[in-house]
Design a protein around this nucleic acid. Sequence first.
DNA 1: CGTATATTCAACCAAATGGATGAATATACT
DNA 2: AGTATATTCATCCATTTGGTTGAATATACG
Lengths: 118, 118
Amino acid sequence: MDEYTDEQKLSVILKATSDPTRRSLLTTLVQQGPSRVTELAQHYDMSLNSISKHIKVLEAATLVTRKTIGRVHLIQAQLEPINEIDNWFKNLRSIWDLRLDDLETILNKEHCDDGSQQ
Amino acid sequence: MDEYTDEQKLSVILKATSDPTRRSLLTTLVQQGPSRVTELAQHYDMSLNSISKHIKVLEAATLVTRKTIGRVHLIQAQLEPINEIDNWFKNLRSIWDLRLDDLETILNKEHCDDGSQQ
DNA sequence: CGTATATTCAACCAAATGGATGAATATACT
DNA sequence: AGTATATTCATCCATTTGGTTGAATATACG
């Protein structure tokens, strides 16, 4: 995912996590540790191929890594990328707080002088 | 969005935020405070109608609210729902930490007894 | 070597998404 | 009343998405 900007990475991560099956897969992986594709698929009323595709979406979002041992693919959760979501939100909230501070300043000014600052 | 389960709400919120234009709209709204649809649209090389649709997606995800005053629709950011994402991630990470603790316990056991616990 | 197992690849399909445009609605202005 | 402005509604279109099935690939096992 190195060829993408941070913004694009964030989009990919958010979209990957927006599907309930994929979030469930992540939870299972975090609970059980590295798991085989077939093993993961058993939890779902869905074809193995569909799960395989979901895993590839997670992999593209770097939310899981794959270690191939013989014919078995071990899938492992990777939580770090979710921090990107966290950072985005923190940033948003800090802008928000900043604006509220400004508003407060304005309100305080209104309190002291003529209040012409709408 | 009351007719949805928490899981479904989370999906809607994540999907809504997964689009770069919509994240940008949220940022603009947080920076500038409540804004009109036309005003928001001016920031983008995209039709007013498309922006209107994006806003409706954000609205459906409860990430913005709308206050209609005459013919003007004032759109306001609403950051609370993003906490749902935060909660999901915190939960995931806590499961992760739990499993690491277990692993550590097992490793400690290996250290003391015969280590047969693979 | 032949067969079973684990997984992906390829093609297909219906539904959703993100965009556009043109018409409709509702409000404001003179 | 008539015109301009703000916004949504309705369609349409190309692309993506989430699922399916069947074939291919690669490894393991007897």
